[in-house]
Nucleic acid binder design. Structure first.
Length: 416
DNA sequence: TCTGGGGTCCTAGGACCC
DNA sequence: TCTGGGGTCCTAGGACCC
């Protein structure tokens, strides 16, 4: 118990909305909703504080948001701009600590342990960091400080908006006790209900229970919960130190139709397009996947997933498509309207697909051909290279990516 | 309310092997 | 012959996060 860590959790305030305001100052001070148009299928990605006053919050259906706040301005959003701003923030963070981990596009953990000589005590360092982010990006953030990721995360949420909160070492239990159980990361809607049913409402109620009780009732989740209530990063993701981002375990793309469909040509062309997107990202990451999964959501929202594991891993659009197509035809309740389709690749193999030599060479040529197609897409846009099946059925309904026609990021620059 | 898209982790059952 | 236990892989579903 000699070396206590100092962890910062930096969380951007209303990130997507704030970036939009940067590009269109007329939005400032107004009710703004990012995520899509008011009558669309979809949910709110981010809402301005003005919109939140009407009960609008992220993950809420857009149509609900429109009813609650009819005068709100609805925006599709600009993912590329968010990524660029996120990278700017990341560069500022690196100036404060070499141990930075982006937890998502708008939040990060910093291990600030042992930086006192350079940046002063935690609160001073946090104020400097806050000011640097503001001056470099014109964006506000909130910063939580604690001895663990968990404490830093919870305290940054309490610091919002535009604040800094330091939980002094030793005060963790006292800080957590009055909070709602829902404030603990990992406690969602269902967990909250289950806890309330037992009369557990505040984190302090949890801390008073025996670990065995929670483990017996809720298994691993319950045990981790008991630890969190005491301020420990007990088990799971929060246990890890702050460092390099972990390698991805799966790559997926999915699409929800604007209207449900039974049109098999349309369905197959969507599967083809999703397979291409997954294949492309596998190739970009130099990955091959053994398991391919189809996701199928019907009109009534019932959702099934069906997977197949290959003997040899692949990164080819055609193989991915062949598998998910087969899975679709095997499991689709014929004639039932489809709301969503998804394709996921997982179980990445470090080695390439084996097999005999000739087969290997043939495969390699195919992979090269697809990589060439990726580069063409980078230059001329996603629609310039499509495999035959992808051409049918008018799948190009709406592209969230780059709606303003900004230049895309050219990841493969410098390659021949 | 009428429910996106991209992920992670956990559980649980069955197959299969020793 | 009618029955064990552990380990690993695969599959399906679900909670949760941003």
């Amino acid at each position: 118990m000699v070396s206590l860590k100092t962890i910062f959790h930096v969380d951007m305030d209303a990130f997507f909305v704030s970036v939009e305001e940067l590009f269109d100052p007329a939005l400032r001070g107004k009710a703004v909703v990012v995520g899509g148009q008011r009558q669309e299928r979809g949910v709110v990605s981010a809402a301005s504080y003005q919109a939140r006053r009407y009960g609008v919050h992220s993950a809420m259906p857009l149509r609900t948001a429109a009813k609650l706040c009819p005068h709100a301005i609805f925006l599709d959003g600009h993912p590329q701009r968010y990524r660029e701003c996120s990278e700017k923030v990341y560069r500022v963070l690196l100036a404060f600590s070499p141990l930075v981990e982006m937890a998502s596009i708008d939040e990060a953990y910093l291990d600030m342990t042992g930086t006192e000589r350079l940046h002063g005590p935690p609160l001073r360092a946090a104020h400097q960091l806050h000011a640097r982010i503001k001056s470099e990006t014109q964006l506000n953030c909130s910063i939580g400080i604690g001895i663990s990721r968990l404490i830093a995360k919870v305290s940054s949420a309490k610091a919002k908006p535009h604040g800094i909160l330091w939980v002094i070492p030793g005060q963790e239990a006292k800080f957590l006790a009055p909070l709602d159980v829902r404030d603990l990361p990992g406690v969602g809607k269902v967990g909250e209900q289950n806890l309330r049913a037992l009369g557990i409402h505040r984190v302090g109620d949890l801390a008073g229970l025996a670990d065995g009780f929670l483990e017996e009732r809720f298994g691993k989740w319950g045990l981790a919960l008991a630890g969190k209530a005491r301020g420990a990063d007990a088990g799971g993701w929060f246990d890890r130190g702050v460092g390099r981002d972990a390698d991805a375990k799966s790559i997926s793309h999915e699409h929800t139709y604007t209207e449900d469909t039974t049109d098999i040509e349309r369905i197959e062309s969507t599967l083809m397009r999703l397979s291409e997107m997954v294949g492309r990202r596998l190739r970009e990451g130099g990955l091959r996947a053994r398991t391919l999964q189809l996701k199928l959501r019907y009109q009534d929202f019932t959702t099934i997933t069906r997977a197949h594991t290959l003997a040899d891993a692949t990164q080819l659009d055609t193989e991915i498509f062949a598998q998910v197509r087969t899975l679709f035809h095997r499991h689709w309740r014929k004639g039932t309207a489809v709301r969503l389709l998804g394709v996921e690749a997982s179980q990445f193999d470090p080695g390439s697909g084996q097999g005999d030599l000739i087969e290997g060479q043939r495969r390699q040529r195919w992979e090269q051909a697809f990589s060439a197609a990726d580069r063409v897409r980078d230059k001329f846009g996603e629609s310039s290279v499509l495999l035959a099946t992808g051409l049918k059925g008018g799948f190009r309904e709406r592209t969230h990516e780059n709606p303003a026609g900004l230049p895309g990021k050219r990841k493969r620059d410098g390659e021949n």
